[in-house]
Amino acid sequence: MGRIVIRRLAQVLPLLLGVIVLNFTLIQFAPGTLLDIMSADQQVSDPVLIERMRVLYGMDQPAIVQLGKYIWSVLTLDFGFSYRQNAPVLDVIMTHLPATILLMVASISVALVVGVTAGVVASVKVNTIWDNLISLGAVFFFAAPTFWLGIMLTILFSVKLGWLPVGGMRTVGTEPSLVGDVLDVARHLVLPALSLGLFYAAMYARIMRASMLEVFSLDFVRTARSKGLSGSTIVVRHVLRNALLPVVTLLGLQLGTVVGGSVVVEAVFSWPGIGSLMLDSVMSRNYPMVLGVLVLSSLVVAVSNVAVDLAYFKLDPRIRAR
């Protein structure tokens, strides 16, 4: 087990290197250089000062040397300095990362719980009104853009009904206890997690239904029935466990899109995660920050992929044999 974890983590490194090279190449295509933006932003016009900044940021050297330097500094966890926030890029990202990871975990939980439950219900009650309703819901949520769903949920639950806050992560101006704080964040989390999670829930419901129906027709289920196990035991202990595998595979493939989707949802709900940070940096052409977010969010995806692989490994003993 430990060897496999290390081997999978070792595969993350070249991937990360690829991300860095790719994005560095992209930045080279940018029409204005970082210096142009900085000098425009801070109204520096003294050519001597600009020249000093050019040397300071290493821009007087050829691109390949800059790339080598950038890779080296990323490997030593130095992502550069953000002149906008006046703090090291890594520090800024790290203060925003927990909010995004919280949103990610909450959305994936919504997706798994809602999706798997809906899929199981649809497959157990196949071709009934329940099945049709669930299929209809899945088609609906699979097609609705997450940001639009978020806005519609806000209109219903925040504006019309007033049950939940419109946006942000905490109520401003209160100094609650620890329990109060957790509840406050949870209240703010409901709508963003639903908007992002329901899209994936729709997908998982469809996959889960198909894979449950397939497993129901296998021989070992008939064996379980013939030895007199109750219907619910068969569903939960025999069919569900086997039918989960395709969902886990899909989850692993989609982690990248979940992080991407969180950017949009964070923009809708002004959730203070790396998505909002990314959008702000893109708008202000804060390239060191953009690169930093790209590299670190890719790292988050790659590492979560390893975690999903390990979950797969736990679920399916057949893979362990290989």
Binding site: G256, T257, G261, L294
Partner: peptide
């Protein structure tokens, strides 16, 4: 596939 698509 690893780079978050919308960010990219």
């Amino acid at each position: 596939q690893t780079i978050p698509n919308i960010i990219f």
